Measured scan of single mutants.
Amino acid sequence: PQECLLLEPGLNEIMANSLDYNERLWAWESWRSEVGKQLRPLYEEYVVLKNEMARANHYEDYGDYWRGDYEVNGVDGYDYSRGQLIEDVEHTFEEIKPLYEHLHAYVRAKLMNAYPSYISPIGCLPAHLLGDMWGRFWTNLYSLTVPFGQKPNIDVTDAMVDQAWDAQRIFKEAEKFFVSVGLPNMTQGFWENSMLTDPGNVQKAVCHPTAWDLGKGDFRILMCTKVTMDDFLTAHHEMGHIQYDMAYAAQPFLLRNGANEGFHEAVGEIMSLSAATPKHLKSIGLLSPDFQEDNETEINFLLKQALTIVGTLPFTYMLEKWRWMVFKGEIPKDQWMKKWWEMKREIVGVVEPVPHDETYCDPASLFHVSNDYSFIRYYTRTLYQFQFQEALCQAAKHEGPLHKCDISNSTEAGQKLFNMLRLGKSEPWTLALENVVGAKNMNVRPLLNYFEPLFTWLKDQNKNSFVGWSTDWSPYADQSIKVRISLKSALGDKAYEWNDNEMYLFRSSVAY
């Protein structure tokens, strides 16, 4: 590609939709070469300064400071330590791993069909083939991996386009969902002041979706909304933040926050679980009234959910574990990228498509890292959202599997949720969690119950496949010279610098 592309739109479109291996590689590498390399010296300084700040406030390091958001002291029976968070994340991840490994094996087999000769049947997945710029969410792999393609499509993007949905309609439908469970409408100022579409040439905007509580009843969302099912669900997520903000607005200023950061992320995700169900999509006209649910549509639905929800958990866990180790000084600065990709291979089963030396800073190419967000919130929120969903479905008197529950129109479920939201940070999160779900610790069981039918199906699908991955295989081993030459021509001086062995191999191949 010759034109100058922004991340959004532009590069993200390539990473969402392109099936051209080399075009995807160009976009993936260009973003890291342009952005990651510029941020490397800044990120090194950032780590030093943030650690100084944390230690001045009596924390061991900046990662310890972040984990302090979960700490509860002096509340008998509800205490929770920063170290306990690490333990809980690690042991819940071990419980999730078998499901993830089977999802990984299934996706690898489907990617082998889409990119023959580029995928190893026992290796890691190349990082640039996973549906977005970071491989964070695998949602866009659904069209390549759908188990029963002859069934009606449960990705309702086409239906939204056919019905001329726009950003306003998407957010109005999200608002209807919250109102149906007894939560309030958005304010008039929300509709007047939010930026729900890309302003285009009028001004440059950071398009990463964010929710804003500017105080004095001024709530806004910034999002360059596209007419897709993914953005339909994202709208519910962002509006969930606003509902939380509005619910605790009466609290004293210092207590106007989520019980912990994971709670804030979980609220909209609960609504997304219901909004994505075929039952709900039928009720708002995005699935045909004669759409029939059966075992095959159930597996299609659960796989689509797993690509988004299960596929991202190792990504989140590994990223934050790397940062915690960096802040603690356990990874020397001259080994940041080496350790990043070692951990990516070992924990996530994902491999870099071309080698990256220590001039890169791949983590900082992600919005949340370069903008100083702690990231473990996206792991804890996933466990909380299924715990909350299970409890709210019980309040809504849902009968049947958890993945079929739609809590819309249940004011009982809405009241149970609101009673927790309005507390803000005035009560320990362990107590707030217990008030809703009857337990005071994160628990992976509801998530595993939700995906149980899919897990059973995946194990059957993978019975003749290798489950797990070898960390030795690299996608650039066989194609390295071709890849390096093409990237050198595209990126010039910003391309990865060849070492002596690679230059010798190149000259030998040319001479041959």
Rank of each mutant, 00 (worst) to 15 (best):
R136T: 06
R136E: 06
R136C: 02
R136I: 06
R136N: 08
R136M: 07
F137P: 03
F137Y: 07
N140T: 08
N140P: 05
N153R: 07
N153A: 07
T187R: 14
T187D: 01
T187H: 04
Q188I: 02
Q188M: 03
G189M: 14
E192V: 09
E192D: 07
V206L: 07
H208S: 08
P209Q: 07
P209V: 10
T210E: 10
T210F: 08
W212S: 13
W212G: 14
W212M: 12
L214N: 13
L214D: 14
L214E: 13
G215T: 01
K216V: 15
K216L: 15
G217N: 15
G217D: 15
G217A: 15
D218F: 14
R220H: 12
R220D: 04
R220N: 13
M229I: 11
M229F: 04
M229E: 06
M229L: 06
M229V: 08
M229D: 06
M229S: 04
D230I: 02
L233S: 09
L233R: 07
L233E: 07
T234D: 02
T234G: 07
H237L: 06
H237Q: 08
H237K: 04
H241M: 04
H241P: 12
H241W: 08
D245P: 12
M246R: 10
M246D: 12
M246I: 11
A249L: 00
A249Q: 13
A249N: 10
A249Y: 14
A250I: 01
A250H: 03
A250M: 04
A250F: 05
Q251L: 13
Q251G: 10
P252C: 08
F253W: 13
F253T: 12
R256M: 01
N257H: 02
N257T: 07
N257Q: 05
E261D: 07
H264R: 08
H264N: 09
H264A: 06
H264L: 09
E265S: 03
E265C: 05
E265T: 04
E269M: 06
S272V: 05
F301N: 01
F301V: 04
F301P: 02
K304G: 07
K304A: 02
K304Q: 03
Q305I: 01
T308I: 07
T308V: 04
T308W: 03
T308K: 05
T308N: 03
I309R: 01
I309E: 03
I309C: 02
I309N: 06
I309M: 07
F367W: 06
F367K: 07
F367C: 08
H368Q: 08
D372K: 00
D372G: 04
D372M: 02
D372Q: 02
D372H: 01
D372C: 01
S374C: 03
S374H: 01
F375R: 03
F375M: 07
F375Y: 10
F375L: 08
F375S: 07
R377H: 03
R377P: 02
Y378P: 02
Y378F: 08
R381G: 00
R381C: 01
R381K: 10
R381H: 06
R381V: 07
